[in-house]
Write a protein that binds this DNA or RNA. Structure first.
Lengths: 222, 222
DNA sequence: CATCTTATTGACACATTACCACTAAGTCGC
DNA sequence: GCGACTTAGTGGTAATGTGTCAATAAGATG
C-alpha cells in the first residue's frame, strides 16, 4: 500500500576497531518486519524536536549507546517504495567513529541483541538494504583515510603512531609501510607529541601523540 | 508552524561549461516564498510515481529542460525546520553534468527566467540555502576531477585532449599543465583514440578521443 | 615559402613513494 | 649483569610521479 508521505529516517553505521579489525554496530530486530535480522541503529525523523537529520542520527545512537556523542558524517540517501514494507521510505545514512576503548560500553555483556560485526565478513543476516549501506559507508571511510584524513576519532585522545597505523590498516584492510606512513604524517603536521608521555610495555616505550589544534576530520565542506 | 510530516524534495545543480567557465542552471522563482530570487531546479518527491529520489531529480530537470537525461549524482541532504518557511523540509541535493553543446537547448532565447550562472561569481540573489548547495556541489565535482575522474559528461561523445583540458580547468578554476595532464591521461587508459578522426581548424588538426569502454564517472560505490 | 597557431612529444630537475635495512630502548630469562 | 628478544624510530636507495620548459609537427594564411 502506497502512502502519501514517505517515512524519513536516519541510519548510522557506527564503526570501531577491535582486534585490529574494522567493525560496525548491529542490532537484532525485535519486531516485524525482518524480526531476527540485524540492522543498523536508526530513528525516524521527528520534525517537532530534531533540528536536522544529523540530530535524528544522534538520537538513534543515544537510544542504544551510553557513550559520548561521536563524530558523525553524512554518507548518502537511500529511497524508494520497496525498501521497507511499511511504505515509501527515505533513509539518510550517516557513519560515525567510536574509539575502541569505548566500544565495550556499547555492546555490554548482557546485550545479546547488540554486536560489533567484522565488516570484512558479515555473517549475520542483514535487514533491509543495510548491507549495501554498510558497504557504502565503509568505502566512504576508506576514501577519507586514503586521502590522508586521519580517523583520529577511532582512537582515544592520546595514541602512539603504531596504534594509529594499526587503525588505518584496519580501516583499509591492508598493511601499510611504517616508514612511509610516518613520513607522510610528519609532512602533514596534523599531530603533535605529548612531551614526556610514553606508552610503556615489554619493549621500547612509544611516544604519545595527539591531534594538532585545528584538526578536522570532515574536510570537504571547505 | 510545525508540520507533522516533512517536505521531501530533490534539488539539482546542473553544471555545464560555457566560455571556459563552469556554470550552473538557475531558475527565477515566480511564486512566494522568495519570489524573484534564483533557485536550483527542484521537485517534491511523489511517492506514487518516483522510484527513488534520483527519479525525482530527473523529473525536476525534465520540467525545465528538453535535453537527454544527464549524468546524476547525489551530493548531500539538507534538513531542518527553518530551511523553508512552508515547513520542515528535507532537501536532497544532486549534481548533474550537461555537455556544453546541449546547453543552449535549455536556456532558450525567450526564457528570461533561466540562466547559466558563472559559479565563480554568483551575482544573482539566491533563494533559500541554495548558495550553500551550489558551493557544496562544486566542491564535490572538483574533488572528482582532482582524483582524475574525468568529467566526460561535460563534453560530447568525441572530444580533443585540449577540449578536455579546458573543461577540467573550468571545473577546477585553475590552469593545468598540458604535458602533465596528458601524461596522466595516458597512464589512466580511460580514453581511446577515434582512428582517423581529427578536428580541423586554422592550425594543426587535433586527434579526437572518446571514453574507453567501461568508463564510469561514479567511482565510489564500487 | 615564411609565418602563425595549435597539437603533440620529449627532456630534466625535483618531489614523492615503496621497500628494505638499520639503530635505539626497553623487558625478560638466566 | 648480560645476551636474546621485541617493538620504536630513522635512513637510504631505486622506482615512480610531477612541474616546468622546450622542441618538433602539421596544418592554415598571406
Amino acid at each position: 500500500m502506497k502512502e502519501l508521505f514517505p517515512i524519513v529516517a536516519a541510519d548510522v553505521a557506527l564503526f570501531t576497531v577491535i582486534d585490529e579489525a574494522l567493525r560496525v554496530l548491529l542490532l537484532q530486530r525485535d519486531n516485524e518486519p525482518q524480526a531476527g535480522a540485524w540492522a543498523l541503529p536508526g530513528a525516524l525523523l521527528k520534525p517537532e524536536t530534531d533540528l536536522s537529520l544529523e540530530h535524528t542520527a544522534r538520537r538513534a545512537l543515544a537510544a542504544k549507546t551510553r557513550v559520548e556523542i561521536p563524530h558523525l558524517e553524512q554518507v548518502s540517501v537511500f529511497s524508494g517504495p520497496e525498501r521497507d514494507p511499511r511504505g515509501y521510505s527515505v533513509g539518510v545514512l550517516f557513519y560515525a567513529l567510536l574509539p575502541a576503548d569505548q566500544a565495550p560500553a556499547v555492546a555490554g555483556a548482557k546485550a545479546a541483541d547488540v554486536a560489533w560485526s567484522n565488516v570484512a565478513h558479515l555473517k549475520r543476516p542483514i535487514a533491509f538494504d543495510h548491507r549495501e549501506m554498510i558497504a557504502l559507508a565503509t568505502t566512504r571511510l576508506r576514501q577519507k583515510v586514503e586521502r590522508l584524513i586521519l580517523p583520529l576519532h577511532l582512537l582515544s585522545e592520546k595514541f602512539t603512531l603504531t596504534q594509529l597505523q594499526r587503525v588505518c590498516e584496519a580501516v583499509m584492510g591492508t598493511r601499510l609501510d611504517k616508514s612511509s606512513f610516518r613520513r607522510r604524517l610528519r609532512s602533514e603536521q596534523a599531530l603533535v607529541e605529548v612531551p614526556g608521555d610514553f606508552e610503556v610495555g615489554a619493549n621500547r616505550p612509544a611516544q604519545f601523540y595527539r591531534a594538532a589544534r585545528g584538526f578536522r576530520f570532515d574536510i570537504d565542506i571547505e
